[in-house]
Every structure is written in C-alpha cells, then in structure tokens.
Amino acid sequence: MIEVKNVTFSYYEESETDTKNNEPVPVALENVSLHISEGEFVSIVGRNGSGKSTLAKLLNGLIVPKTGVVTVAGMDTVNDETIFDVRKTVGMVFQNPDNQIIGTTVEEDVAFGPENLGVPTEEMHKIVAEAIETVGLTKFSKTEPHLLSGGQKQRAAIAGVIAMRPKCIVLDESTAMLDPIGRREVMSVIEKLNREEGITVILITHHMDEVAMTGRSILMNDGKISFDGTPRELFSNTKLVHDSGLELPQPAYLMELLGLDTGIISPEEAADKIASMLRGGNHVS
C-alpha cells in the first residue's frame, strides 16, 4: 500500500553546502526503500536523529523526497492534485497532544478533518460520533481539550484521524509524552483499530514494550534502514539492539540476564520458558 523507493531527503538545500569547510549537506534519509502492505502493524525504532520522523512525514506528503519516489495506494506524494487523497489515506498523529488539537471541543476537533474534506453536515455528525466512540471518549465529546488528560488528548487526536476514514495511521512518537496509563490507553486503541478495522498502523516509538506488540519492526540508523523483520528477530540480535542505542523489552532483558534467547518478548512466553526450565531441572534432581 505504501511504497518508498530509493528515497533520499535532506533538510538543507544543495546550495546551502557549507562553503567554509566544504562539508557535504547533512542528509536525514539516505537511499531508503520500504514496502508496507495493507493491514500491517509496523514499528519504527532508532535513536534520536536517525530519520524516523522524517520517514513518517514523507509517508503523507508533508515533505517530499529530494530523490526517489513515495507512493501511497498508487499515488505519488509529489503530485499536488492527489495530495489531499494521500493525506486522507495516511492519517498522522503527532507527538505533542496540545499542538495538534485545533477545535475548541473534542467533537469539533474530530470534525476538523471531515470539514476540510467537505463531508455533508448530517453525515459528519454520524462519522464524528462514531470516531469518538471508537476511542472511548463519548463522555467527553463536548469537553474542552485542555481539560483532558494526556492519554485522552491523544485518543482525541486519533479520533480526529479516523474520522477521515484512513487506510493507514502513522503515529510519530505519539506515546512519548504520556504517562504509563495514557500510553496503555492509546496502545489499546491502536491495537483495536489494527485488529478490528484492518487499519495499517505505523508506530514510531522509543518504548520497546510497544515494539513487542507489533508484527514488524524497522530499525533506523543514521538515515538508513539497518533492520527490517519481526520484533522477535530484532531482539534476538542483542548486539544490534545495543549498538543502535535501544533497550530490550523487559521479558527479553530478563532472558538476557539469564543467558537465554532474547527473542522471547512477551511476559507469558518468558514465564513459560522459565517454568519449563525449572521443571526440567526438577527432573534432573
């Protein structure tokens, strides 16, 4: 559904090349290629400045590649005529909950997208109510956003995106500013959207337990993709994980301390593994 082909991006113009010391223009992304199919739940990880957010912004045409092509459902993001269809297809939730809520109440904010798309008023009321219900904020639909908790604000932002009926949602570190409860609320909403509505989710995050919930994990290093596979495979490679400035999810960390396979990333599996080993030990003694 999303196709990224040989994309290079820089926040500087070629002409801005440092004339003083002749350094090359810093590049945010270098020759990145990527294919994301419909219904996938993908996490993108990497240290700060590795190009994760740049990649996210390329996916809905907020920025366009210097070289290479990004296509969403067959539409090139460079094409001005289809750019709004691209943005309607790939919704985006940002990091700071306060800076992305436009409306003065939750329902008005959720209605912002449909208003821009020219959805008729009656239909809009239905869509907005549904979107708010999906994220579990029906009680708060007339509340002013600054009275909500961080998790509620991000859920409102997600509702604002799903009211546009997207096929894909990109979350750019949307859980980074939340407390553990807020994070759990947001993650359960995202998981539900992916599982029940079949919406493709691309989750950019620093939290490894969130990565463990996804089906595919992409690791970015210095503007390049250095790993693309399942989270299990990613965390099995402890050297790569540590070299990229990441941590292991807690169950995997425990496995590492025990000298076992760090590909075990869910608490249940870790418990089973330890239990079976203990049982095995009992047999011997």
Binding site: R87, G91, M92, F94, N96, N99, Q100, N116, M164
Partner: peptide
C-alpha cells in the same frame, strides 16, 4: 507550537 499545529492541520487536509 505554531509549526507543529501547521503540520497537524496540513496532515488533516486543511
């Protein structure tokens, strides 16, 4: 904040 808000509005087809 203004910059963030502008991206958010653009992303929602404003």
């Amino acid at each position: 904040r203004a910059e963030d808000l502008a991206s958010a509005m653009e992303a929602r087809c404003y």
